[in-house]
Design a protein around this nucleic acid. Structure first.
Length: 145
DNA sequence: GCCAACGTTGGC
DNA sequence: GCCAACGTTGGC
């Protein structure tokens, strides 16, 4: 299993809206960046991800699960753009802010810190577990299949 | 609201 | 195929 981070501006698409989709989930459409798309192509059903609010909040607010592998983005005219489907799994009780991440030396290599503009990014298992802990989650629970 | 960083586009 | 110009993202 691999771990990821999905970034969204909360006023465009928030974790609240994602949760409202329930088990059916929602396609992560609108990505028009090759790097981000390529990461989505690597995703497998069952992969876990963070839901990160950019601009407003700037924090990891939820855990999501990939429920469908990459397929054409229904909002794109060009078939080259693809996306996965994700569903909300659980809240992060204590959202982990960008400042929190930057203040933690063990997270200094996170893509979030080093390439802030990438909207879909990989997260290592260690990073994932640590951010879960910082957010008040039992990593075992968030990472268990 | 500003601007740095980055990706993409298009002229040559 | 280079690179200047431009648009977008996202932190501050």
């Amino acid at each position: 299993m691999q771990y990821w981070l999905f970034k969204s501006e909360p006023f465009k698409w928030s974790f609240e809206q994602q949760k409202a989709k329930g088990e059916a989930g929602q396609e992560w459409d609108g990505v028009r960046n090759y790097q981000a798309r390529n990461f989505m192509r690597e995703m497998a059903v069952g992969d876990r991800g963070f839901f990160y609010h950019s601009n407003e909040g700037k924090a990891v607010v939820g855990i999501v699960e990939v429920i469908a592998t990459a397929h054409p983005d229904s909002t794109a005219e060009d078939a080259k753009w693809e996306c996965v489907d994700i569903k909300a799994m659980m809240d992060v009780p204590k959202p982990v802010t960008l400042d929190d991440v930057k203040a933690e030396p063990r997270l200094k290599d996170m893509v979030l810190v080093n390439n802030s503009r990438l909207s879909v990014q990989p997260v290592t298992a260690d990073e994932f577990a640590l951010v879960c802990e910082m957010g008040g989650l039992d990593p075992k629970e968030a990472m268990a299949s």
